[in-house]
Simulated assay, not measured.
Amino acid sequence: MKLKLFIALLLASTTTFAQEVKLAATPPMGWMSWNIMSENPNEKDIKEMADAMVASGMVKAGYHYIFLDDCWQGGRDNKNNIIADAKKFPSGIKSLADYLHSKGMKLGIYSDAAPLTCGGFTASFNFENQDAKTFAYWGIDYLKYDYCNAPEDVATAKIRYGKMAQALRKSGREILLGICEWGPREPWNWGAEVGGQSWRTTYDIRDKWNDTEGKGGVGIYNVVDKNAELAKYSGPGKWNDGDMLVAGLHGVKGPSSAYNGKGCTQAEYQSQMSLYSMLNSPLYASCDIRKMDDEARTIFTNEEVVALNQDALGKQAERKIKNDVWDIFVRPLANGDYAIAILNKAASTQNAKINFADLGLADKYEIRDLWQHKVTGKGNKWAGQVAAHETKVFRLKKI
């Protein structure tokens, strides 16, 4: 009898795990409304952004989600069903979801594990099951679940996120859960256990390379440095979320410009894309796709770099070397290849000489540069110049 019970429990847990992996077998990709629309997300602009994502080639490259962030809510109706602001979304959220689905896209939405969101709008605490059913009816595919106005302890966070995860699973629709408590409660330790598919690891990213003073405003490298230590927590169905891609913002006024977010160099924007792909962070752009420049489009739609992020093995890169100048990452890929990323953290161009054996790669390889889109050498080492805050990314094929 005990053996039968054990087998039943084992099968149940395996089924649940398979379902979770199916929900996010690879990191989600898309576009987030917050940096551009902030407190005024609206139906017209969201539809225009979706059209621009299709026209720019982003959807073809894998950016299927539009993540509708805070401030979309209009309160609750007389049956306590959460509703959208009728002025911002006159056709309703279901109509918007239908529009995106017709284009081969998906819709993410936002709520908070407290009575009110970060922006002071209606949230989902004590309405988890009802809101999950509403989201399912609307055709929502992802929920970003924030943690403003909630208690600071870990135990409460686990309970509140777990309750929403269960509600989503019972809603009748497959909806991903993105845990957004910003890292203080170390959600990488418990996020998957309570039913999340990803978890933010830091506070909100700003449009800058690095925050060195600790006064607020996380930069690109702050996130990379944090996520580099969390490789063992990442894998299919469970991802370390580094927050938004900032390429194309160029210091535009808004949330991303807070805390001295004045913009980044092309090398820095490209490095974020490279390193987030190596580290398996969800990829979601946040600039105005309708008017983004060719530089940002090239960064977002580099299919060879995106392929690292979406690799079926789902193995996050490990940082093999970290010193004052270099961070060097290595990750295995599903077809037996390896990817390496070489980041120059210095403020000036540096000469690199990398022996692959020092990274644990003992064979000889064909070396393909994923930004130049060509094979640049063969052997067991690489040497070359790396510009300030640039990241070289290579795919190594054994020969």
Rank of each mutant, 00 (worst) to 15 (best):
M1F: 12
L3H: 13
L10G: 12
A18I: 13
V21F: 05
A24P: 01
M32G: 10
S38I: 06
P41V: 12
D51Q: 14
L68S: 05
D70P: 03
Q73Y: 08
R76T: 06
N78D: 13
I83W: 07
S91N: 15
G92F: 09
L96C: 05
L96P: 00
G104A: 09
G108T: 07
C118R: 06
G119F: 06
F121S: 14
G139M: 03
L143Q: 03
D146Q: 09
T156V: 15
I159Y: 13
M164A: 04
A165R: 08
P184Q: 09
P187V: 01
G195Y: 09
R200W: 11
T202E: 06
R206C: 12
D207S: 10
K208H: 10
Y221G: 02
V223F: 02
D225P: 07
Y233D: 03
M244P: 03
L245W: 12
P255I: 06
S257A: 14
G261E: 02
S274M: 07
Y276P: 00
N280G: 02
A285T: 08
D293C: 13
I299A: 03
N302W: 01
E304Y: 05
A307P: 00
L308E: 03
N309L: 06
Q310K: 14
N323V: 02
L343S: 09
T349C: 07
A357F: 13
K374R: 15
N380L: 03
W382N: 10
Q385T: 12
Q385R: 12
Q385L: 09
K398P: 07
